[in-house]
């Protein structure tokens, strides 16, 4: 990886909007590994990612962010380990409208704390179930209960500005960590 290349991984359950988010943000036509979804009992979407998504975002400062999306289903967990290796941070997307949204979220947080323990985590909650943002509270509460400091945003994965906010927040968290370390050394 070149000095100006940063790798960010979009993780989350099936249908959370990972492929959509990368498509919204990428400067290039993303690499997709979507195939027909045969498990319509679990999710009604027609296509599902089975290996990865890959996109590319050029930042104003010249850095390039490489955007990787994971498959959402646990049978593809081997890809999560592979894709998170070398990432500077993780964006976890979740669909608030799903009945099992919080259970899925808990499972992903547990997994990500194991395979990406040191990388900052940013959470994007899609398909809001409240107008006042109160649907974010259970996700924030779970993170707090685990002692995890991670910003939680309501997002629309189709909106470039929303997805860009997640990435920019992640970069700000990283920058703050570097400054903190520098202060500690001095």
């Amino acid at each position: 990886m070149n000095a100006g290349e940063l790798k960010i991984v979009f993780a989350g359950p099936m249908g959370a909007g990972k492929t959509t988010a990368i498509r919204a943000l990428s400067d290039i036509e993303p690499v997709s590994t979507e195939v027909g979804n045969t498990d319509l009992a679990s999710h009604s979407k027609q296509l599902t990612t089975v290996a990865l998504d890959y996109g590319h975002l050029q930042l104003d400062d010249g850095n390039v962010v490489k955007l990787y999306g994971t498959p959402g289903q646990s049978r593809f967990a081997f890809m999560w380990d592979i894709l998170c290796a070398g990432a500077i941070g993780i964006v976890l997307l979740v669909d608030a409208s799903r009945d099992d949204a919080l259970d899925d979220f808990r499972a992903f947080v547990d997994t990500l704390r194991r395979i990406a323990r040191d990388q900052p985590l940013i959470v994007g909650v899609g398909r809001p179930t409240s107008a006042d943002g109160s649907h974010l509270a259970p996700f924030q509460a779970h993170l707090a209960s685990q002692g995890i400091v991670a910003p939680v945003f309501g997002v629309d994965a189709r909106e470039r500005a929303d997805v860009l906010l997640l990435v920019e927040t992640l970069l700000c968290v990283l920058e703050a960590r570097v400054e903190e370390k520098t202060r500690a050394v001095n």
């Binding site: 590994t33 979507e34 195939v35 290996a51 990865l52 593809f76 081997f78």
Partner: peptide, 8 residues
């Protein structure tokens, strides 16, 4: 996954 990657 590998099949999808090889196609990509």
């Amino acid at each position: 996954s590998l099949q999808a990657l090889s196609e990509a």
